[in-house]
Simulated assay, not measured.
Amino acid sequence: MFEIEIDRTFSAAHQLRGYNGDCCKLHGHNYKVTVVVRSPEQDEIGIALDFKKLKSELDSLLAVYDHSNLSELPEFREINPTSENLAKTIYRKISEKMNGGAIRVHRVRIGESDHSAVTYFEE
């Protein structure tokens, strides 16, 4: 089994509705996103998944989030844009684009600082 992993970053603001603390105020993070895709196979030249394809799909998805207020986006109107919900949302969106044949998104990790991160995956 091969694991293909990429990292990307974006900057965004958010606020957590119903949170009893500073995070209920509008604030921002420089998010780090790690996506891990698995494949048991390689193509005829020895590539399991071209990094370019995964980077392109993730960059397109993250462009909507970059320099935005996540709390105002449609996918976060009913749920808080926590790191957990962001990881789950990105996981599901990138899976729709990438899963096919032998390729499966395995996990998505969201870091909102150098010291805090959450990982989402489905078993």
Rank of each mutant, 00 (worst) to 15 (best):
residue 30 N to A: 10
residue 30 N to G: 12
residue 31 Y to Q: 08
residue 32 K to G: 10
residue 34 T to P: 03
residue 35 V to W: 04
residue 35 V to P: 00
residue 37 V to M: 02
residue 38 R to I: 15
residue 38 R to H: 13
residue 39 S to T: 10
residue 41 E to S: 12
residue 41 E to I: 03
residue 41 E to A: 13
residue 43 D to Y: 11
residue 43 D to K: 09
residue 43 D to I: 08
residue 44 E to N: 14
residue 45 I to Y: 13
residue 46 G to L: 01
residue 46 G to Q: 06
residue 47 I to H: 07
residue 48 A to D: 08
residue 48 A to N: 11
residue 48 A to E: 08
residue 48 A to M: 06
residue 48 A to G: 15
residue 48 A to W: 07
residue 49 L to N: 05
residue 50 D to C: 00
residue 52 K to G: 11
residue 52 K to E: 11
residue 54 L to D: 11
residue 54 L to A: 14
residue 55 K to Q: 12
residue 57 E to L: 15
residue 57 E to G: 05
residue 58 L to Q: 05
residue 59 D to W: 05
residue 60 S to H: 11
residue 61 L to F: 02
residue 63 A to V: 01
residue 63 A to M: 10
residue 63 A to S: 14
residue 64 V to R: 14
residue 64 V to W: 04
residue 66 D to Y: 02
residue 66 D to N: 14
residue 66 D to W: 03
residue 67 H to N: 10
residue 67 H to E: 05
residue 67 H to I: 01
residue 68 S to E: 12
residue 68 S to K: 13
residue 68 S to C: 14
residue 69 N to G: 04
residue 69 N to F: 07
residue 69 N to T: 02
residue 72 E to W: 02
residue 73 L to K: 09
residue 73 L to Y: 00
residue 74 P to A: 09
residue 74 P to W: 03
residue 74 P to C: 06
residue 76 F to L: 06
residue 76 F to W: 04
residue 76 F to M: 00
residue 78 E to N: 13
residue 79 I to T: 13
residue 80 N to K: 01
residue 81 P to M: 02
residue 81 P to I: 04
residue 81 P to S: 02
